[in-house]
Write a protein that binds this DNA or RNA. Structure first.
Lengths: 243, 243
DNA sequence: CCGGTCAAGTGGCTCATCCACTAGGCCACC
DNA sequence: GGTGGCCTAGTGGATGAGCCACTTGACCGG
């Protein structure tokens, strides 16, 4: 390998693509702050767009863009000719995504993962088609090859869990999984870096596969639970609180 | 009561407040449609703002408002000087809420509930404070009184599960529960309408409570699983597919 | 092959205006 | 008294022209 990779990924933390903030984002920040400082609450009226533009020293168009954002987020109601009103007591959004973001500290994610994937494995054992079973098997084979090549099998791992999720035929559970997918990826990578983990991981995945292949829901759930807990344990051992 | 109410609520379906669509919303629709018609996919570039404005016969400001919306929804990436690009293959948002709405057909919700609440019971057994245990007990007492009064105990049921969720100290799992809370309420009401259900339900809740009180995580999980599955069974028996 | 220059294309933002609608005050009329 | 019409100031909705900043790619000279 050369010291320069042609791959467009970040070479170091400091060299990630820059984020240039749009003006309307800054306006959003100011608006949020103003609502708090001025003690506004649901039903109160915001300053007129023209006044806001003047106060903030930006054009009315930028103010409007910010207000449109708040509008689609359901935080504000703009009445043509009648002013713009607060819907709630705050302009902060609290979607699942942000909550997940704040919970980067992993323990909760791992708990959620156990809850979801255990059930997914159970359902997969009951519902998988032969084609889906084959996809799971393919992921397992892929993982085996990776490990044989000295790799840690992280991609095979990812494919395996994705295949099981698909085989469970529950789009709601799948949706929940999607919201914590990123955090899981991190824990996966870290876990598989531990010496000896890849081969033990392969064994655990094989056990899950066999239970699903046999249509044994209870055994599949148990095998998945054991696997997820192992990952959680490894992860938490190396855990260093940062704040 | 007079035939005229002083209350400002809608007197008839037809007289609800009118909804005037903003221009940028129409632009959004057109953009979504265009992505589909033109067969665009992730990474493809959208037409230039000026061109879009000209084609749609609207101002560039309106086009920009629409693009800002897509931007905050993470569906599009606008590069200063470089064009605007699709992040996914579609411009449709698929938040958990909408998915839940479409999944009103309950089975998936009940599966998700089992996955989540089983884990919540387990965590509650391990982590509950004495005060939280007392809250759970209070909910149980409330349910008992309701049933003694000939009521079906639906409010006590709700309080019980809320208390267990709180005692588990997992805001992520709690957040997931919130997204399916409404559907659960429906199934709860329907389940408790079945003859004989309220008293059996009380017994199951008592079992869960005792396991949590004893700090027995495994038993708590098992009791909760049994309870949720009972509800699911009753619910699905009366299930009538609608489409 | 490298690096600099340049021009075209594109998004970011502003300004000046006009239009449509709301809210509130006023008043004539019943 | 109160009902309805009218006017006006204030406000959001939308536009068009224009300037700037940035990206891209082609071109050119070393």
């Amino acid at each position: 390998m050369s010291h320069l990779t042609g791959y467009p990924g970040p070479m170091s933390e400091a060299l990630r693509p820059m984020v240039k903030s749009r003006l309307y984002e800054q306006v959003l920040e100011r608006l949020r702050a103003h609502v708090i400082e001025a003690g506004l609450s649901a039903g109160d009226r915001l300053p007129a767009e023209r006044d806001l533009a003047a106060s903030l020293g930006v054009s009315r168009a930028s103010v409007k863009q910010a207000i449109v954002v708040l509008e689609v987020q359901g935080l504000v109601e703009a009445r043509h000719g009648g002013g713009t009103y607060l819907v709630r007591d705050t302009l902060d959004v609290e979607p699942v995504e942000q909550l997940v973001e704040r919970r980067k500290r992993l323990p909760e994610v791992l708990e959620a993962r156990e809850a979801l994937e255990t059930k997914l494995a159970e359902l997969a054992a009951e519902r998988r088609t032969d084609a889906e079973l084959e996809t799971i098997r393919a992921a397992l084979d892929f993982m085996r090859d990776e490990i044989a090549d000295g790799d840690n099998g992280v991609e095979g791992d990812r494919r395996f869990h994705a295949a099981v999720t698909a085989a469970a035929h529950s789009s709601l559970l799948a949706e929940f999984m999607k919201t914590i997918a990123e955090q899981i990826t991190e824990s996966r990578t870290e876990s598989l870096r531990q010496p000896g983990r890849p081969s033990r991981s392969l064994a655990q995945h094989t056990a899950i596969y066999e239970a699903i292949a046999a249509g044994d829901a209870k055994k599949a759930a148990a095998a998945m639970r054991k696997h997820v807990r192992t990952v959680a344990k490894v992860r938490l051992l190396t855990w260093v609180p940062e704040d």
